[in-house]
Amino acid sequence: MSGADPGTSSDANFSEHEKFYLRQALTSVMKEGAGLRAPPLDDASLWARLLAVCASFRDRPLLTPQELLAHAQGERYNEEFRQAVLEGFLSRNTAFFHGREAFRFLQKKLQQNIQTSPQSTQRDSATSSRSTKVWSAACASGQEPLSLAILWHNLQKQEDTSGAEFEIYASDLSSRSIEKAKRGLYNNFDAQHGLSVSSLMSYFDQQADGGFWQAKNSLLNSIKFFQHNLLHSPPSFLPRELDWIFVPHTFDRFDANVVERVITRLASLLSSDGWLVLSPCDAEIALRAGFSEDDVAREHGLFSRATFSYPDRISGKSFALDNSASAVLEES
């Protein structure tokens, strides 16, 4: 089968022995590279994943599954192989305003902030400062940070936001996802998932062929995009006192042993009354990681930093919330 076009073949014809190597390689790279659980792979889904991985080799788009097998059977997986596996598994699409309640809650907080705060740049908390910093930490194809930008632009039309700032940071592990997010180009189908027609018409331009919608530069330019692995320390340019971190619909594929550490790290980046946005189904993990339960969290996946305490089992001892938390996490 060597040299076969992976895009047209429907069966890899791998032996059971070879499939074992491939499954082992995929599982290992997913876990070590991103803390992710590889899904159960029957023969058909293994083949589909392999095609996606082959397509991820940017400079060698015609890499065959057999060449991939050679990588998998090697003593060490090289960086190119690791990255391709992650890209092949990670690329995912999402929707605008996914988890709508979190956006409503953010909007309410911003309105309170704007209406109650004097024209001042003094920063003391997430609810009273004039500057709000938000990180969409697993932004996939970009709908989440664009939703944040739309929310802020809409608010500017309704309220006097002069003197207020809204900083949006957006990252994803997948370089392909970040490239797509930066482009801000969506087909008709994706563009209307979660987006009202009025927002679509206000903030996107339809392409000449009629099949795609391009986010306006005013939105895209308000977002700082970067590639980032949540298992690693965040880049230095990311503020250390964020007001909101969005990571909903992210951890269901993470390895269970890693999630608590990631959530704890994210909590250490929040301001004293900042908010972490997870999925409602992540509540158990958040509780294990040190957040205490409240009604808002339970209902909508929102966790306040004010309810967070570092669990003994992560730090090895109780300690106050300060910058040393990150260092402890690096060691744990």
Partner: peptide, 21 residues
């Protein structure tokens, strides 16, 4: 929309789009 529609779905659609709109 000018004629009085409240929302607009571009076919093809799925459950997610219907829910959203």
């Amino acid at each position: 929309m000018s004629a009085g529609a409240d929302e607009y779905i571009m076919k093809p659609f799925d459950e997610g789009v219907i829910k959203s709109k």
